[in-house]
Design a binder for these strands. Structure first.
Lengths: 199, 199
DNA sequence: GTGAACATGTAACAAGTTACATGATTGA
DNA sequence: TCAATCATGTAACTTGTTACATGTTCAC
């Protein structure tokens, strides 16, 4: 097996898999940010509908990326506000991101405890399911409003595209849920009743 | 703090969190199954759009559930086929499932490397993004066809409900992607071009 | 006879969560 | 003064993944 010369090895930085590190790299590619900001972008912001990361994952990821020279960090000391560490992607980080993006994306991961609970709605207490559906609809309305707002501000085409995608999906969920909730609400408690009757 | 008497402790089995164990319990509640079948249901079947579990998670989970008496197992020896272990939920398992379902569902987890890649489409090689979009559309068409088929067979209302939900979401994704793909395809490579020009 | 589907399992490892620990500033 | 928001970080723990290991039967 041939060993790459040093100058080539330098051009091929460690390939980051599609994990929190790659996620940070991708967000930093769009602009410098602190760990706190990255978390907010993935939690409530225009990335929240397709990524997921907690502080406990983001901060160590940023430290590791800095150690690998894929990002650089400047300490910002602002009077009247807590200090913060603002990270920027480096040319090496850019290369690593390109390498990660060149791989075919894996299947989406979706885990919905909510749908799982609805599938087993027969086992639920009467008020529980309706309550949860109400909460979910309210939450979807919030998310839809946020997305619409973000869409008005954004001008980069890919940013608009992914927001539009999220909006389309959220609207479909909301519409279906509002129109068909009676299907699950009609059977709530049946499973319990059957068991109680059998006793 | 009061300690529950033994007969009450027996009625309150270990509360399974919303993880692979609870997932197995929920599926077994709908009918006995082997580990292999559970995996197929969550991979391609009518659960695939809201749960996620691999063999390496399912088999240990079933063993643990059996040790806790939340499921029972019967070994099936069928001539002309590999043996298999068919699990059934026990009354104790039923209680544990109820306890797990009584908790409020957490937020859905969604991770889409695909959307992440589209958000950064400017960095992609020209053919790459269009290829991936084509593949995704084809996959969505498969999933839509499967859901439609499942919907025709199913008669339990909650089963129909969750399939219908998946269908609504998949159709929204397909529609949006087909109509708006030009937004990302228009900018593919811009990021690279800019960088190359700067060199 | 070869690849796909059926079928179960283990172990080393990777990854991320949760809870903890800390502290500043702003606005009610 | 109290809650919320800004801000960073650690460590023990839980969880699940990946790859390995094995063997059968069916259809082409």
């Amino acid at each position: 097996m041939a060993v790459a010369p040093d100058h080539l090895a330098a051009r091929a930085p460690e390939i980051a898999r599609m994990n929190v590190k790659t996620l940070c790299l991708g967000i930093l590619q769009l602009g410098s940010a602190s760990g706190y900001e990255i978390r907010k972008l993935t939690q409530d912001g225009p990335f929240s509908h397709f990524v997921d990361a907690s502080y406990g994952a983001i901060y160590p990821a940023l430290s590791a990326l800095e150690a690998e020279r894929l990002v650089s960090c400047r300490e910002e000391r602002r009077p009247g506000r807590p200090d913060r560490r603002v990270y920027s992607i480096t040319p090496l980080g850019h290369e690593a991101l390109l390498a990660a993006l060149a791989e075919s994306p894996r299947q989406d991961v979706i885990k919905s405890e909510f749908l799982f609970a609805l599938r087993l709605a027969e086992l639920a207490a009467p008020a529980h399911i309706s309550n949860e559906i109400d909460r979910r609809l309210a939450r979807l309305e919030d998310q839809i409003a946020q997305m619409e707002e973000a869409l008005e501000r954004k001008c980069e085409p890919t940013g608009r595209f992914v927001c539009g995608y999220g909006l389309a999906v959220y609207r479909a969920m909301h519409g279906y849920l509002a129109e068909n909730r009676h299907m699950v609400e009609a059977v709530v408690g049946n499973g319990l009743a059957a068991r109680d009757a059998a006793e």
